[in-house]
Design a protein around this nucleic acid. Structure first.
Lengths: 248, 248
DNA sequence: TTGCTGTAGATGTACGGACATCCTAATCTT
DNA sequence: AAGATTAGGATGTCCGTACATCTACAGCAA
């Protein structure tokens, strides 16, 4: 039977609300199993389709989890959503409104000592290829940032294309080696600019700078590249917008 | 009829893949309408249930949009996902592993001059309530950060609870005024610590510091609170994990 | 004990039908 | 010409059925 004309909300929504209440009230505790679908059908006098639609909502909200052959269990209790931020592509991580150009300063293989091994999350003695570059806004002489880029040696061929307009290392890796970046971990801190790098960046020694480390992962949690960026002064600020995902 | 035993994937998935190909190939261009559900049923020889399941996937991926009574249209062409980061709650934005305590330094109403009006995204002459505080890790004498917190004057009563363990201003606003924070905009930059604040923070004057501005919005894009935080030195780093949402 | 097999019970997939609701556009009325 | 009404067609909701697939567990065999 279809829902009555003036019902406030569809039945699956009412059922989802009821289940949400039961979860928040503690009738179904975290880790506990929900009754099977057919049982919920009887209890609430609806079809299996409606039950599945209601459960689907709660699964999307992260409150429930399901496994075929096993059942449906409670994963979380809170009815409030998560805050999420999203990017269209990795390039948005850099938030450069203007196009930029990369200039290569140095390239060399490096063997990880203890300190570098910690930075790269690898064991000492492992070898990486290190690029040192500056990134310039197109047509401007003052660099935007200083970058140290580490890639596994197998990806050395990207050196031929690393200089140029609008180049990103992760893009070269994806293009040449068919690896897709699936995850990026980013750490933002602050640091004083060393005299050598201050010279490259045209800023005062010891000036405050944003210190950004990014880890690029491919499928299977394989670390493909690490970059350490230094943004001097206030040439750059990160803006992130966090939004509540599913409101109630 | 159910799917044959050894099929690689369910029919709705095959149909979703087929539609995705058609979108990427340009058969259905951005903004164009997809054929109606019943037409897709005939074209692909499946039931409406299967068609709706396939379309649901593409809607979840952001490729399609639908409106009751109108139809299904193409919103985007790319088959690659978005990178998303998520937080369990606003408190995770601060990433303090230890609990903290807030200490009030000053409280006063302020009238926005041009500079402050720009910071607060409001018109000059508007009045706000300004709290100046430091945040300390529990039981430690060295503050973690210096904060300037602006709230609309109507929320003045929170001053009575602003000092204490594990207090967040947004939490007080939500608790006392029933306002839910729905969006947070965050800007991260760097700055040198002024001598006065350096004294409060027990760090050297002009030391590099993370400069974080956060805008807290309630429903209807109403700005409820603004905070300007200064984290000296390397007492704090932001870690964000961006993950590709739906992979293929 | 160990390993295999069968079975019950859970979710997953897929078909069918019916009616509700919403939007657009054509049509009718004023 | 402008507004109200109607009709058609699109998605949304909800019911029914059947079988597939997966998992855990009991029972049996080596």
């Amino acid at each position: 039977m279809a829902r009555s004309p003036h019902a406030a909300s569809p039945r699956y929504q009412q059922l989802a609300d009821a289940l949400l209440r039961d979860i928040e009230n503690g009738k179904y505790r975290i880790g506990a199993m929900l009754p099977p679908e057919l049982e919920l059908c009887e209890q609430h006098g609806v079809s299996r389709h409606t039950v599945r639609e209601a459960i689907r909502r709660l699964v999307d909200m992260g409150l429930l989890g399901r496994r075929q052959g096993v059942g449906t269990h409670v994963k979380a209790r809170s009815g409030r959503g998560r805050f999420v931020a999203s990017l269209g592509s990795i390039a948005d991580l850099f938030q450069y409104t203007q196009r930029t150009r990369m200039k290569l300063i140095d390239e060399r293989p490096v063997t990880a000592d203890d300190k570098l091994a910690e930075l790269l999350h690898c064991k000492p003695q492992q070898t990486w290829l290190k690029f040192e570059t500056c990134r310039y806004p197109l047509g401007k002489p003052v660099p935007l940032c200083h970058m140290e880029i580490y890639v596994v040696p197998a990806y050395g061929a990207i050196r031929d294309e690393i200089e140029g307009d609008g180049v990103w290392v992760y893009g070269l890796v994806e293009k040449h080696y068919g690896e897709h970046i699936v995850e990026v971990q980013q750490e933002v801190g602050t640091a004083a600019t060393s005299p050598r790098i201050a010279g490259l960046l045209h800023c005062k020694p010891h000036a405050p700078a944003l210190h950004v480390t990014r880890y690029y992962y491919g499928r299977g949690e394989r670390l493909l590249s690490v970059s350490v960026n230094l943004y001097p002064d206030n040439r750059f600020r990160f803006a992130t917008r966090w939004r509540l995902e599913w409101d109630q």
